[in-house]
Design a protein around this nucleic acid. Sequence first.
DNA 1: ATGAAAGCGCTAACAT
DNA 2: ATGTTAGCGCTTTCAT
Lengths: 337, 337
Amino acid sequence: MTVTIKDVARMAEVSISTVSRVINDSKPVSPEARRRVLKAIEELGYKPNEVARSLVTKKSNIIGIIVDDIGSSYVAQIIRGVEEVGRMYNYDLLLCSSYGDKESELRFAQLLMQKQVAGIIIVSEILNNDVLSFLDMSRIPFVYLNKYYNVLESPNVSINNREASDKVMRHLVEEGHKRIAYVTQEKDVELTIEKHKLEAYREWMGNIGGDPMVFEVDGHKIEDGYDIGNRIVERLLEEKITAVYCCEDEIAIGLINYLYDHNIKVPEDISVVGYGDITLASYFRPMLTTIKEPYYDIGAVSIRRILKVLQGEKVEEQTIVLPVQLIVRDSCASPSK
Amino acid sequence: MTVTIKDVARMAEVSISTVSRVINDSKPVSPEARRRVLKAIEELGYKPNEVARSLVTKKSNIIGIIVDDIGSSYVAQIIRGVEEVGRMYNYDLLLCSSYGDKESELRFAQLLMQKQVAGIIIVSEILNNDVLSFLDMSRIPFVYLNKYYNVLESPNVSINNREASDKVMRHLVEEGHKRIAYVTQEKDVELTIEKHKLEAYREWMGNIGGDPMVFEVDGHKIEDGYDIGNRIVERLLEEKITAVYCCEDEIAIGLINYLYDHNIKVPEDISVVGYGDITLASYFRPMLTTIKEPYYDIGAVSIRRILKVLQGEKVEEQTIVLPVQLIVRDSCASPSK
DNA sequence: ATGAAAGCGCTAACAT
DNA sequence: ATGTTAGCGCTTTCAT
């Protein structure tokens, strides 16, 4: 049946410890013995049983990742980043989808512990102190990623949302827009990144002497953006709004779809700016002007952080802040007229 | 420290075997002993070490999944299907991305074996007999999914592509199109599903007495569809083509983008049909008329198949064929005339 | 019904 | 430099 370290030892005529030593390069082994072991491994096609290994070393080279929904493209991008960097260091990914359920998140965290994962990355869209405190206690290296909520007390990787919003507003103003609306999330504003984005928006509107006009959307999906189009389009027209800054790409795209379906042209009649730069943003027409949240990098940096901790390095900052970028594309133009 | 079965046994004043029996419900245990064990487990917050378990049982409840690129939305959908069904039976997912590299696919398959996964699902976009024969030999239950190539000799889940193409052509013809072009893949046509799709296309064109007009595209990305727009648009116009049937949604979307960027209206000037129904298809404007490949279901059925084998059930068919559906949306209309 | 003990495949002291 | 041995935490005979 499956070949074990014993078989290798027997064939190479050494003890299993010697075999172990050459596999792990953990102690000096005479060239001769090493040669024989290597030969035996080759001939038998021996592959160490990772499970047995994990049992004794009490750790696997598996990183657990709990995501909200792998179907979201930003989540997939984060996973790519995690996967690719992890792979470089021979770490594998154990994937769980919580679909936004608090209890699932916690249960998966426990499950991953049972599986002796080396570290955990959570991509969450809700606020869930239960996992956070569980993870804190368990003393396993982890990173908590949350696109919406400000996470302050846990290791995380994010961008400076205030700065990002400033970039959007500066661009809009420089393009000549004065009547700019902002579409924000209605839920938990004070706890989310919307707080900072709204601040930036309000400040800029103050500076250019315009009235802030804030609309609230409920949900993060393209459909939700479409719905809000339905609810606000009349106000937009009445108030002669020339640009709508949406808190998320999905909302922006939904809104543009609504406008498209009602013969309002983007950007000719109204400019729309998004936030996130999801995959769709550049395939969609008109191509979306938006803030690039570097999802891939967020994933890559997250696992790097965990790997560092695993190697015993001290990681100072709780939050690692990545640079933001405004991607100017076609959904935004100077106001006609 | 971490609490083990010994701790539970001590607290419950039974042997570890009894604890094991309670945990696994493997043998009768007296009500009294069971009660005490349960209580101890509760109080200590004991969670069995899955790694130790796997070592002795020689199998984990982990399903390995090797995908081409988790960034593709169809891949993400398949994974969702696998994940959700797997979860119902307490299986976890170990994820590897091969990025289309043959050797990676093989290496990952070996790696997954080392980790004692219970089964393997491969989502491949290339032809790789090395993994296939490795998997065959290893006698681990697996499913080989390939969107492009006909896989005949390995367990797989797919749709009837011939039938799907018939549906597209019937729809196009019923809408009144006579001058229909088909965009196919240029690579390995004889080995891929394009063979059957082309057959259907040619047969229908023969039936309505039209000239088949086939264009070849190289690649599966939206950009590739855009490129081909550049290459064929003049022919399309010359030949008064009223509908283009593209072998993949990505190609269709790229083509529509090209047409959009060059002021050719879809569907008013030209109808475009895709194949796949990727997530983008319904968010894109015009919404794409396309064949729905049920990715989620493909994933779900794949893991069900593996689970069946794991439970010792015989699974007769190598290939499980799922029903197809034509999704009629907006990118296709009757030819204006 | 329960416990003692062997052993899964490996690593890591400890001896030599 | 190499071998012997004791576990890692669990399941599973085999006795009782």
